[in-house]
Amino acid sequence: MASVRTYSDLDVAVRSDTSDVGEGPVFDPRTGRLVWVDIYGCKVFEDDLSSGRQTVTEVSMMVGAVAPRADHEGFVAAVADGFGFIADGELKMVDQVLPEPNLRMNDGKVDSRGRFWAGSNDLEFASGQGRLHRWDGESPSVVVVGGLVLPNGLGWNAEDTVMYLADSYANLLYRADFHPEAGDLGRFDTLAETEGPGVPDGLAVDVDGCLWVAMHGGREVRRYDPTGRVVGVVPVPVLQPSSCVFGPDGRLYITSARNGLSPEALARSPLSGSVFVVETGTTGVPVQPFRA
């Protein structure tokens, strides 16, 4: 049985007591800034970690994830109604794929060919209503997988042959064969059934083929090896770590949430909503910008 390593060299990268559901961290190669969102707060944060300067863009609806664009200013965005672009402080809707008021976009990530993948879910997390979408910025988006609950963290292995997906309220981590040229998937099979405390939220993939999964409600980030075994744990000083990303410095940055916590719980975890950073001894699979 594999031993479980504890990663305890944790620090605060961005202190925040205003973000409600910090999510979707990504590094912008154009600026070097850490970019992340507040889903329910309808905000996009850009943090210069060297100076401590933060830029905040308020969006007109819930925003599940953003990603830098390769050849344009601003960001591609998965927002409540579908897909669009954020630039100069404004959201421009392009693909309104979710007009239903009970649905919204959630976490998203760009693949090696520059396509944006994002999950959607029912606001009450009704089973079977979750879907995985793919958008190239030009054609209408397509639903690649349906029948999920709360599709969340996404990632690909270094060889670009496997895609991973967390379905939070199913307590499952999935894997599927990935065909990068066409952007096609094989069948999603279960990599691991996660056990509490907490549910699997956002994730990052390292160059060794392991998944780093934020356990929302579990006070930790877990490292799963390619067979689905837990081989590492990062204790986090808040109840709701929400997602993570590897930075260009090789360290892992972890977002967190305050949403739903009582005043007593917030008093016990005053750093809830902040972003943390930890040394891991590995590096992440590079995350690409959006090509359109």
Rank of each mutant, 00 (worst) to 15 (best):
A214R: 10
S112E: 05
A214V: 14
E124Q: 15
A67W: 00
Y7M: 13
M93D: 06
R115F: 00
M61K: 08
G137R: 03
R222K: 08
T255P: 06
T31C: 07
L91W: 13
W212V: 10
S141L: 14
N171T: 06
D208G: 01
V110F: 04
A13W: 04
D47K: 05
L172I: 10
P286R: 05
D47P: 04
F246L: 00
D28A: 14
T194G: 03
A78P: 05
P180D: 12
R219T: 11
P270M: 14
P263H: 02
S120C: 13
Y253E: 08
A257W: 03
M93T: 04
A166E: 09
G153T: 13
R268S: 15
Y164G: 03
V4H: 04
P235A: 11
W135I: 12
E138Y: 01
T57K: 03
W156S: 15
Q129T: 09
L252D: 14
R131I: 00
R69K: 06
V278C: 15
D71K: 12
D122M: 04
G41V: 01
D122F: 03
V94T: 09
F290H: 04
V231N: 13
S274A: 14
A70R: 15
M1I: 10
V79H: 10
A80M: 06
V238A: 05
R134A: 07
G82E: 08
G89F: 14
E46L: 04
V56W: 09
D107V: 06
A126W: 04
L150G: 02
A87S: 15
R251H: 09
A204Y: 03
V94M: 12
S51V: 12
G108H: 01
G52A: 04
T190C: 10
D48K: 13
Y253W: 03
G284H: 00
V275C: 12
V110P: 01
D28S: 14
G198H: 10
K92A: 15
R33C: 14
R69Y: 04
G218N: 00
T194L: 13
I39P: 10
P235N: 09
N259H: 12
S112M: 11
F27Q: 00
S262M: 03
G155Q: 01
V97F: 08
L150T: 13
P289G: 01
P101M: 03
V285L: 08
E100V: 07
A170H: 03
W36C: 06
E100Q: 15
G108Y: 00
D208Y: 00
A118D: 03
G218F: 00
A80Y: 05
R115T: 01
V12C: 15
V287T: 02
M1E: 07
C244Q: 09
D189K: 12
D184H: 02
S168N: 03
V285Q: 08
W117S: 00
M93L: 12
N171M: 12
Y7H: 13
V12R: 05
G209W: 02
L165D: 09
L271Q: 08
A70N: 02
Y7A: 09
G284D: 00
D167W: 07
R69L: 06
L103R: 15
V97P: 04
W156K: 07
T255D: 07
D225R: 06
P286C: 11
A67V: 00
G153E: 11
S168V: 07
D9V: 03
R30P: 02
S8R: 13
G147W: 12
W36I: 11
I39C: 09
R115W: 01
